[in-house]
């Protein structure tokens, strides 16, 4: 037999190879499990540290008061109501801008645009997705802010609206991508059935294709909300960070993320103030987790339907 010519005996060589194989499998499995550990670690760390704060502060005060003054020597206050309102205001306004625009772009790219146009717009959108948030924040300071101040005759442009416009720009790429995928996933037969009944392309798009892509498109929106809620640098740089409950989009606001970014660097380790920042983090984490899970559920539902 030919294999008698091998150098070392086949049995020991094979043993070594099997050992190697098993070791490698163990290694990659351990690496994959790290992701589970990290997510669990983030979760427990935020909850654990946040929990310490609730020894000193009532849940009611934390969520429903809007008085935030944790650094005060006498009578510190830990109400994040104002920040939650600010965060939601900026996020919702951003979505009001980005969602229709994103759907319009997705519909245009998948149903109307020539391949050439699509080949031009798609990379541009991908490029937009890659712009660091600090650069977007800078654009908010030097372009959007002054523009808003001039247009609406404001003392300065550091308002909720500025943040909302920037977040809309940042959320746009993911909304367009997910929504376009959803529209493309609608079976061709739906459209053909509609054309066969004498509908034109526009009616088909509005009455058949978009409703059929419905939960996929909504998933895109919810995902966008999740991203916008957690965005830090942009709002930190563009919304002025005033600690008041905003009356309108033209007020300055301070979001939950901005509070963490501003105060984490200066807070003494282990104080109630320190833990309260983790409590904000835990709240934010749970919020974005809920948005992500909702988006995932909707996307899964959409995949089942199509």
């Amino acid at each position: 037999m030919l294999n008698n010519a091998s150098h070392s005996s086949p049995a020991t060589t094979n043993q070594r190879r099997h050992l190697q194989d098993r070791a490698f499998k163990l290694l990659v499995k351990a690496a994959a499990l790290l992701s589970v550990l990290v997510l669990a670690g983030i979760f427990f760390l935020l909850i654990w540290n946040g929990f310490y704060m609730f020894k000193e502060v009532s849940i009611w005060e934390f969520f429903f008061s809007s008085e935030w003054n944790p650094g005060a020597l006498k009578n510190p206050q830990y109400g994040i109501g104002g920040m939650v309102v600010g965060t939601m205001l900026v996020t919702i306004a951003a979505m009001v801008l980005a969602f229709p625009l994103g759907i319009a772009l997705a519909a245009y790219l998948s149903e109307v645009a020539s391949p050439l146009m699509r080949g031009f717009v798609r990379p541009l959108i991908e490029l937009l997705a890659g712009i660091p948030s600090v650069v977007v924040g800078f654009i908010g300071i030097v372009v959007v802010g002054p523009f808003l101040a001039q247009t609406f005759n404001l003392p300065n442009g550091f308002t909720a609206l500025n943040g909302a416009i920037l977040l809309a720009i940042m959320a746009l790429p993911s909304i367009v991508t997910v929504a376009e995928d959803a529209i493309r996933a609608v079976p061709r037969s739906y459209r053909e059935a509609s054309y066969a009944l004498g509908s034109n392309k526009w009616t088909t798009l509005i009455r058949v294709t978009l409703p059929a892509a419905g939960s996929g498109i909504i998933a895109a929106g919810v995902l966008g909300v999740g991203r916008a809620v957690g965005e830090t640098m942009t709002v930190l740089m563009a919304t002025g960070n005033a600690l008041e409950v905003p009356d309108s989009l033209f007020d300055s606001v301070r979001t939950m993320t901005a509070t963490m970014a501003i105060e984490m660097g200066e807070v003494p380790f282990g104080t109630t103030h320190y833990y309260s920042l983790f409590a904000i983090g835990a709240t934010l984490f749970i919020m974005s987790l809920l948005f992500n899970l909702t988006a995932e559920y909707l996307a899964a539902k959409f995949r089942r339907l199509s």
Partner: peptide, 16 residues
């Protein structure tokens, strides 16, 4: 876990 990690806000990574 991986899908949800992708959605965790970057400042939370900072705290972690």
């Amino acid at each position: 876990s991986i899908r949800n990690l992708a959605g965790v806000p970057s400042i939370i990574y900072g705290l972690f």
